[in-house]
Nucleic acid binder design. Structure first.
Length: 963
RNA sequence: GCCGGGGUGGCGUAAUGGUAGCCGCGCUCGACUCAAAAUCGAGUCUCGCAAGAGGUGGAAGUUCAAGUCUUCUCCCCGGCACCA
C-alpha cells in the first residue's frame, strides 16, 4: 500500500522526536572540533516571522547541519533582540506592558521557528530584555564608563512639537512627525556617548585579519572614513581668532578664495559683535536647524549660505584677504567644522562660488595620461604649449575634426598644434586653423577657463611629451572662403565635419574629450595634477605639494575619520536603564556592580514626559535614590540604552547563557570563540551599525582581557532580502506580507525551505512568488515516490527491474551524475550557492525517475538533501531501514574516480561562431584535434577554399578557426 | 548627493573570458479521464518555410573569442549614524 507524502504528519513527528533526543544541542565538554554558526537574532515584532527570516535561517541551518554531519560539535543558537521602539510605541498606544507584549511576540516567533524545522539549540535561548541578560549589558557599559569611554555631551534630538516627544530619525518623515504630522525641530539635550572613535583606527586596520565579503569590508572602511589630510589655520583679520580647517587638498591652498564655517561653528557666535549682517546670519542658522544632515549635503539641492559681513580671513599661503561664509553643506561633526573653499578644484565650492560670484583661481593643472601612447619610463620629458580648437560651422552646426594618418592612424582630434616661440596662444589658434582646415575667416567664441595637460609618448621622436593645452571654441564666419588644404597637410590627416552629438563618439584622446566636455559644460578640476599660480610650489605634483605647503604655512598632517562617537542615550522606556546615578555632591556615580541589574519600574503609562525626558523621569519613586558614595540624595539616570546595546555582545552569552557570575565563563569563551565566531551571516543593512558596534564592544572586552580574541567574527557573509511579488518591500501597510505559517501548512516547511534556497542567488534581493513554490513541492513528491518504491522493494539493492547489463550501464552513467552532484552540492553549500545546489539535485532526481536506483545511492542523495529538507529526508531514511537519525550520519564523500570522464564533447568555432561539435579524448594533443576537426564534414562549407590564418585549441574547452 | 549592490526569455534565474538561456514557474500541444484536477510525454529567446541571422539596459573598446574584462552612460535596489 502506498502512502501519500503527508508533510503535516511527518514534520510534526520529527520536530518532536528531535527535541526529545536533543540532537541539536551543542555538547558542553569543550572537546573536539567545533563550529559556531551565527545568525542575527530576530527582533520579535508583532507581525510575526517574515519569510526573509526563513531564508537566512535556513542558509545557516544548511551549513550547520552539514558541519554536524562532518563531525563538528555545532553551536547554532537563537534568541531575541527584544528591546525597541515598535514594542514601546505599541505599549503607548494600547497601554499594555511591553514586557507582556514581548512575551507574546517571542512566543509566536518561537512556535514559527520550531515549525520551520531549524536545528537551533533551544536550551541556550536568550532574551535581551531578561534582567539576567541585561545585567551584563549594563555591566559592560559600566566598564566602559570606568575606562572613560562613556561620557556626556550636548547633541541634538528630533523633537515633535505636538507630541512633545523625542523621535527617531525614522519617525521623521519629510520633516514632520510620522504619527501626528506635527512639526519636528532640533532640540539640544545632554546625552550619553560612547567613544567608538578611539577605536576607529583598529576597527579599520583589523579588517585585514578577518574573512568578510569584500563588499562588507569596503562599506565598513568607507563608514569609518579614514583620510589623511592637513589642519591649517586661517587667521581672522584684525582679530585674535583663528579658523582651523581640515583639508585633504593642501596642494590647492593658493586657490582658496574663501572660507566656510558650519552654521553651528562656535566662532560664529564669538564673532557676533563684528558681524554687520547678524540678522541675516541668525535667520539662516534657524533655517538650517530644521534640516537633516542628508538634506544638507545632498548635491542635487542647491547650495545655500550667508556671508559673515565685516569678517575677513587671511589665506596663509599668499596672505590674501578672503571672505568668510557659513553654509549648510559644511557639517560641524566632520573635520574641524570649517573648510577652505577652492572653487577651481572642488565641485561643491565651485557651485557655491558661481552662485555667489566668488573668485575662482586655478592652481592645479590636470594631467591626462594618454592610454593609447602612455609615457614610457626613462625617456626625457619635453614640455610644449599647445592649442586645441573645436571649430564650428554655424550654418549646419558641424564641428571640424581631424582623422590622422601615418603613425597616428586611428586617432581623431580637434584642430591642434604647438605654440611657437614668441607667438601668443590666440595667434596659434589662427595659424593652426589656417594650416589644417585652410580657413582664415574665423572668430574665437570661447576660451576654456582651465589650463590642462596631457602626458604621452611621441614614439617617432623617442621622447615623452607634456602638452600644456589651452582649449578654444571657434566659429567659421564664412565657409566659402575655404582654400585648398596643402598636400603636406592632406598626407597627415583628413578634415571631417560632424554633428555636435557625434563629436564625443569620434574624438579619441582622453585629454581632448575632457577639453570638449569642459568647453560645453564647465566644472571644477578635481583630480591631482601639477601646481601653478602657487609661487615657489609651481610645477610640483599635488602629492609633493600637500606636504610642502602644509609645512610652509605651519599646519600639521593629521588623520581624520568620518566615524562619529555613538549617541548611546534614548529618551524611552523600553530599553536597558543606563546604570548611572546623579548626585549633586559627587556628580555622576556608577551603580555598584552588586546592585545590577537596574530594573525597569513597573508602570501603567509609557508616555514620555513633555520636556524631552524619558518616561522613566515621571516615576519619582524609581528616580529618587541615594548616592552610593555619599549616601546623600540622588537621582537615577532616566535615559535608556539603544537597542544596539544588547546586540553588541549577545553571541558571547550563547556560549554560557545561564552563568550568573560572569557574562560567560573563560573556558566556554575559549572553546567556542577562541578565534571568533566561525561564520556569521546577516543582512547588508547591518554592515555599518550593528557590525561595527559589536566589533567595537568586543575590542573593548578584549582590551580588558575578558575575551580571547580581538575580532568577534572570523567570517561574515550577507543575505539578500525577500521582496513582495511586485518587487516592493513587504509591509503591513502595503498589505503584501506573506505569512510563513500558511505556506508551511499548505506545502510544508521542507518545501518552503527548499523554495527559499532555490529562489535566487543568496546574497541578492529576490521577489517572492507563491506560484513558483509548486516546483520544489513537486520535486519533493518525486523524491517521496522514489523513496517509497525503493523502500518497498524486497531486494537490498533496491533494484527491481532490469538485466545485469543494464545494471552495469546504470552504474556507469548514473553514478557519475550522483557523485558529480554530491561534489557540487558540497561545494555550493560552502559558497552559499544554494540555488544551484538545489538545481543540481533536481537534475539528479529527474534522472532517478527514469531508471532504477540502488538503495545505497539513494541514501547518499537523501543525505545531501537532508540539510535543506530535514523532515522528509529523515522519514525516508528510517523507511529504508536506518536506525539512527540522518542528521547525525556522516556527510557523503564523492568518489573522484567516478566523476572522471575520458571523452568530452567540445564546440568548434569558425571566426568565433559555433559551426560544429566534436567528441575527443580528454587529453588529446593539438595536432590530433586539428587533424580531426579539419576533416569534419559538417565544417566543410565554412573552411573550404579559405585560408586558415589561425587555429586555436583550448584543451578540453573549444576550437576556434580563424579564416 | 555619498557609499555599496544589481540590470540576461512572459517570470525567478544558470553560464572557471570558451556552444547564452541549465533548473524551476508559466504557457502551448498530446496521453490518461465522462469531465476536471493531479500526473506523464513533447515543445517554448526573437525573426525566418529553411539555410541562416540577430540577441544578455545603452554606447565605445580590449580579445581568435565578451553576459563575464576596460571606459562612458541610463535605470532599479540597500545603507546614510535615534527602525531593527
Amino acid at each position: 500500500m502506498k502512502n501519500e507524502y503527508n508533510h503535516l504528519k511527518i514534520e510534526k513527528k520529527w520536530q518532536n522526536e528531535w527535541e526529545k533526543k536533543k540532537i541539536y544541542q551543542a555538547k558542553n565538554g569543550f572537546k573536539g572540533k567545533k563550529f559556531y554558526g551565527l545568525i542575527e537574532f530576530p527582533y520579535p515584532s508583532g507581525s510575526g516571522l517574515h519569510v526573509g527570516h526563513i531564508r537566512s535561517n535556513t542558509a545557516m541551518d544548511v551549513i550547520t547541519r552539514k558541519r554536524r554531519m562532518e563531525g563538528y560539535n555545532v553551536l547554532y543558537p537563537i534568541g531575541w533582540d527584544a528591546f525597541g521602539l515598535p514594542t514601546e510605541n505599541y505599549a503607548i498606544k494600547t497601554g499594555l506592558n511591553p514586557e507582556k507584549v514581548t512575551k507574546i511576540n517571542t512566543g509566536v516567533f518561537r512556535r514559527q521557528l520550531k515549525a520551520g524545522g531549524f536545528g537551533f539549540d533551544w536550551s541556550r535561548e536568550i532574551d535581551t530584555t531578561d534582567p539576567k541578560y541585561f545585567k551584563w549589558t549594563q555591566w559592560i557599559f559600566l566598564q566602559m564608563y570606568k575606562k572613560g569611554l562613556a561620557y556626556k555631551k550636548k547633541t541634538e534630538i528630533n523633537w515633535c512639537t505636538s507630541c512633545k516627544i523625542g523621535l527617531a530619525n525614522e519617525e521623521v518623515v519629510a520633516g514632520v512627525c510620522e504619527r501626528c504630522g506635527g512639526k519636528v525641530v532640533k532640540k539640544e539635550k545632554e546625552q550619553w556617548m560612547l567613544a567608538i572613535t578611539k577605536y576607529a583606527d583598529r576597527l579599520d586596520k583589523d579588517l585585514d585579519k578577518v574573512n568578510y565579503l569584500e563588499k562588507i569590508k569596503i562599506q565598513q572602511r568607507n563608514w569609518i572614513g579614514k583620510s589623511e589630510g592637513s589642519e591649517i589655520e586661517f587667521s581672522v583679520k584684525n582679530l585674535n581668532e583663528k579658523i582651523k580647517v581640515f583639508t585633504t587638498r593642501a596642494d590647492t591652498l593658493f586657490g582658496a578664495t574663501y572660507v566656510v564655517l558650519a552654521p553651528e561653528h562656535e566662532l560664529v557666535e564669538k564673532l557676533k559683535s563684528q558681524i554687520t549682517n547678524w540678522n541675516e546670519v541668525e535667520n539662516y542658522i534657524k533655517e538650517v536647524k530644521n534640516k537633516t544632515d542628508i538634506d544638507r549635503t545632498a548635491e542635487d539641492k542647491e547650495k545655500t549660505g550667508v556671508e559673515l559681513k565685516g569678517i575677513k580671513a587671511i589665506n596663509p599661503a599668499n596672505d590674501e584677504e578672503i571672505s568668510v561664509w557659513i553654509a549648510d553643506y559644511v557639517l560641524a561633526s566632520y573635520g574641524t567644522g570649517a573648510v577652505m573653499a577652492v572653487p577651481a578644484h572642488d565641485e561643491r565650492d565651485y557651485e557655491f562660488a558661481k552662485k555667489y560670484k566668488l573668485p575662482i583661481n586655478q592652481v592645479i593643472i590636470d594631467v591626462t595620461h594618454d592610454k593609447k601612447n602612455p609615457p614610457k619610463d626613462g625617456l626625457e620629458e619635453i614640455k610644449r604649449n599647445t592649442v586645441i580648437i573645436f571649430l564650428k560651422n554655424r550654418e549646419n552646426n558641424q564641428y571640424a575634426l581631424l582623422n590622422w594618418h601615418g603613425s597616428l592612424e586611428g586617432i581623431t582630434t580637434g584642430i591642434m598644434g604647438g605654440v611657437e616661440e614668441g607667438e601668443t596662444f590666440e595667434e596659434a589658434v589662427f595659424k593652426e586653423i589656417k594650416e589644417e582646415a585652410s580657413i582664415s575667416d574665423i572668430k574665437i567664441i570661447k576660451k576654456l577657463k582651465w589650463i590642462t595637460s596631457a602626458k604621452y609618448c611621441a614614439s617617432h621622436k623617442n621622447q615623452n611629451r607634456l602638452a600644456i593645452a589651452c582649449g578654444y571654441l571657434a566659429e567659421v564666419n564664412n565657409i566659402n572662403n575655404q582654400g585648398l588644404i596643402s598636400e603636406e597637410e592632406k598626407n597627415k590627416h583628413t578634415l571631417v565635419w560632424v554633428n555636435e552629438k557625434d563629436v564625443l563618439n569620434n574624438l579619441t584622446p582622453d585629454h581632448q574629450i575632457l577639453i570638449w566636455n569642459q568647453l560645453l559644460n564647465e566644472s571644477a578640476l578635481v583630480n591631482d595634477g601639477i601646481l601653478m599660480n602657487s609661487n615657489q610650489f609651481n610645477n610640483m605634483t599635488s602629492e609633493q605639494a600637500r606636504k610642502k605647503i602644509t609645512e610652509f604655512v605651519g599646519g600639521k598632517i593629521v588623520t581624520k575619520y568620518k566615524l562619529r562617537d555613538w549617541v548611546f542615550s534614548r529618551q524611552r522606556y523600553w530599553g536597558e536603564p543606563i546604570p548611572i546615578i546623579h548626585c549633586e555632591k559627587c556628580g555622576y556615580v556608577p551603580v555598584p556592580e552588586k546592585d545590577l541589574p537596574v530594573l525597569l519600574p513597573k508602570v501603567k503609562s509609557y508616555q514620555p514626559t513633555d520636556n524631552g525626558e524619558s518616561p522613566l523621569a515621571n516615576i519619582l519613586k524609581w528616580v529618587n535614590t541615594t548616592c552610593p558614595k555619599c549616601k546623600g540624595k540622588a537621582k537615577r539616570e532616566t535615559d535608556t540604552m539603544p537597542n544596539w546595546a544588547g546586540s553588541s555582545w549577545y553571541f558571547l552569552r550563547y556560549v554560557d547563557p545561564k552563568n550568573n557570575k560572569e557574562f560567560a565563563s573563560k573556558k566556554a569563551l575559549k572553546y567556542w570563540i577562541g578565534k571568533g565566531v566561525d561564520w556569521y551571516n546577516g543582512g547588508m543593512e547591518h554592515t555599518t551599525l550593528h557590525l561595527l558596534y559589536s566589533r567595537f564592544w568586543h575590542k573593548f572586552l578584549y582590551d580588558l582581557k575578558l575575551v580571547p580574541m580581538s575580532e568577534p567574527y572570523m567570517k561574515r557573509t550577507s543575505h539578500g532580502m525577500i521582496l513582495a511579488e511586485e518587487g516592493e518591500k513587504m509591509s503591513k501597510s502595503r498589505g503584501n506580507v506573506i505569512n510563513p505559517d500558511e505556506i508551511i501548512k499548505l506545502y510544508g516547511a521542507d518545501t518552503l525551505r527548499l523554495y527559499e534556497m532555490f529562489i535566487g542567488p543568496f546574497d541578492q534581493a529576490v521577489s517572492w512568488s507563491t506560484e513558483s513554490i509548486i516546483g520544489p513541492r513537486r520535486f519533493l513528491e518525486k523524491v517521496w515516490k522514489i523513496g517509497e518504491k525503493i523502500g518497498s522493494s524486497r531486494s537490498n539493492l533496491g533494484i527491481t527491474r532490469g538485466s545485469t547489463s543494464s545494471r552495469q550501464s546504470y552504474s556507469a552513467t548514473f553514478q557519475t551524475l550522483l557523485h558529480k552532484t554530491i561534489k557540487k552540492v558540497s561545494e555550493d553549500i560552502e559558497n552559499m550557492n544554494f540555488n544551484t545546489a538545489v538545481s543540481s539535485m533536481m537534475i539528479l532526481v529527474n534522472e532517478m525517475e527514469k531508471q532504477d536506483v540502488a538503495k545505497k545511492d539513494f541514501e547518499m542523495f537523501l543525505q545531501i538533501l537532508s540539510p535543506f529538507s530535514p523532515h522528509i529526508a529523515e522519514e525516508l531514511w528510517y523507511l529504508l531501514g536506518n536506525k539512527k537519525s540522518i542528521h547525525t550520519s556522516s556527510w557523503p564523500k564523492w568518489d573522484k574516480s567516478k566523476i572522471k570522464e575520458d571523452k568530452i564533447k567540445i564546440a568548434v568555432q569558425v571566426n568565433g561562431k559555433v559551426r560544429s561539435e566534436v567528441i575527443i579524448d580528454k587529453d588529446s594533443d593539438e595536432n590530433l584535434v586539428k587533424n580531426l576537426v579539419l576533416n569534419l564534414v559538417s565544417l566543410k562549407p565554412w573552411i573550404e577554399n579559405k585560408q586558415i590564418k589561425k587555429f586555436i585549441y583550448v584543451p578540453g574547452r573549444i576550437v576556434n578557426i580563424v579564416v
